[in-house]
Structures are given as C-alpha cells and as structure tokens.
Amino acid sequence: MLPIIIVGLLLNAFLLSNADEDFIFKNDILFLLALIFIALSAWIIYKDKKEFKKTKSRLSFLPTITVIIFISFFLITNIVLANRDISPNNNPGWL
C-alpha cells in the first residue's frame, strides 16, 4: 500500500506544482507517473480480490479504497485546475 501512496502523492503534487508552466518532457513525466499508478492500482485490486476470496474479510479491500480515494483526488484536482483556467479575468483591462 505504501508504493501507491507515494506514487499517488507524487502524481498529485506534480499536477499541482506544474499547472501553470510548461517544460520539456512534462507530458512524458505525467504519462510515466500515471502508468506506474495504473499498474500499481491494477496489481492492488487483483491482490485484494484474491485476498478477499481467501479471508472473506472486508478489510482486505482497504488498499483498493486508498486507490479510489487517490483517483477522486486526481479528478478533483483536474476539475479545479480546468475551472481556474476558464475563470473570467478580474483585471478590468485598459480603460
């Protein structure tokens, strides 16, 4: 569960810190972090389903819940950044 937390926090921090600037390989870094997150998420969900079949305990889905929380954080971050980009300019301009 620790790797998904680390990658999730890195991905969200990278999205927030680089929202206003572009630099070379930005999309490649985002793609790589997202790919690692997706691979870890798939592995965690598979492992949790297998563990649930053995133990029948709902606590075995705790890492999956962590993945869902991070996905919701990513969605909220992207929605806030998208709304900030289309917000009206408060500058009255040249009079």
Rank of each mutant, 00 (worst) to 15 (best):
S72A: 14
F31L: 04
N91M: 12
M1H: 13
D20I: 09
N78I: 15
I79R: 03
G8R: 00
A19H: 04
M1G: 15
I24M: 06
I69R: 05
L95S: 08
N89L: 09
P92D: 02
P3C: 09
S87I: 14
W43H: 15
L40R: 01
A13G: 08
L95C: 12
D20Q: 07
L9G: 15
F52I: 11
T64C: 04
N90Y: 12
F73V: 13
I36Q: 02
T55H: 05
A42T: 12
F74A: 02
S57D: 01
F37P: 03
L2A: 13
L81F: 10
T64K: 01
I79D: 07
T66Y: 03
I36R: 00
K47C: 07
V7M: 02
I65R: 11
I79M: 07
L75N: 10
F31T: 06
R58M: 05
A42Q: 08
F73L: 08
R58I: 12
A42F: 09
F31H: 05
V80Q: 10
N89A: 15
L95M: 09
I69T: 14
A39K: 06
I44K: 00
I65Y: 09
S60P: 03
I45P: 00
I24R: 03
K26L: 08
K54P: 15
S57R: 10
P3K: 05
I4M: 03
I38S: 01
I45G: 00
A39R: 10
L75E: 07
I68W: 12
K56A: 09
I68D: 08
I29N: 03
A82E: 03
N78K: 11
L2D: 10
K54S: 12
K54A: 11
K26I: 06
L2V: 13
K56I: 15
I65K: 12
A42D: 08
L40N: 01
L15A: 04
I44L: 00
K49F: 09
T55L: 09
I24W: 01
T77C: 02
K26C: 03
I76C: 15
V67I: 10
L2W: 13
N91S: 08
L35S: 11
P3V: 10
A42E: 10
I38Q: 02
G8E: 00
S17L: 12
S41T: 15
L16C: 09
D28T: 15
K50L: 07
I86K: 10
L40F: 00
G8V: 00
